[in-house]
Design a protein around this nucleic acid. Sequence first.
DNA 1: CACACATATCGACATATGTCAATATCATTC
DNA 2: GAATGATATTGACATATGTCGATATGTGTG
Lengths: 107, 107
Amino acid sequence: MEKVACCTRLLTVPLPQSDADELAARFKALADPARLRLLSLIAERGEVCACELVGPLGISQPTVSHHLRVLFEANLVERERRGRWIHYRVIDTTVDALREALTQTTV
Amino acid sequence: MEKVACCTRLLTVPLPQSDADELAARFKALADPARLRLLSLIAERGEVCACELVGPLGISQPTVSHHLRVLFEANLVERERRGRWIHYRVIDTTVDALREALTQTTV
DNA sequence: CACACATATCGACATATGTCAATATCATTC
DNA sequence: GAATGATATTGACATATGTCGATATGTGTG
């Protein structure tokens, strides 16, 4: 997926359709409690092995994997295979862009 | 709906289930392009009559009304009836809380 | 009260999404 | 190559969600 356009703000200018589509897709990835919690665990540690994410939330491995995929495809996390293991990290720029989208002008 | 807890951050501490549920509900309200665009129109003007929101996006009046309801129930907008008309405003504190949730510690 | 206008709600429909068991795929080891 | 371990994918299922036409509800006017 392509990156969110720099400095898109939804609260100050009428949002173009293309920006709305992209932002909505990202918010949709965040619109699930399990995914928020997974993202939180990843962000807290900086980098987490998938194996550490299966268990803490009390959901099945396929579900965890599915959620990680949603986060990955929304460009919210990056992943790196290390042998048998896959590590996940939060993509700060995407999160920053979402935060920016929620920002009002301060002028 | 109750307000988002002050200063919830999903990127710095493991997110409790209750916070995750609430945040997810709010992000879900933002997870639709039409709703983002409606919110954008409302925020840009500060206050908008529903009648001004039916048309710009090219979707039907019931759909607009439905979306406004979703935003309202997610506590993202407040509404006020003025005779035949209903006016909507963005609830800044909710948006601020969502932005805060996406904030990393800066220490 | 009847009528007009604004807007919410209902019901139907198509599509999307979360969950899990089973299984496929990838990497490692012997 | 076979076996093992980690993790993604598939398929089934139940539930959720976006859209719209029709209609209900609330407000204002004569």
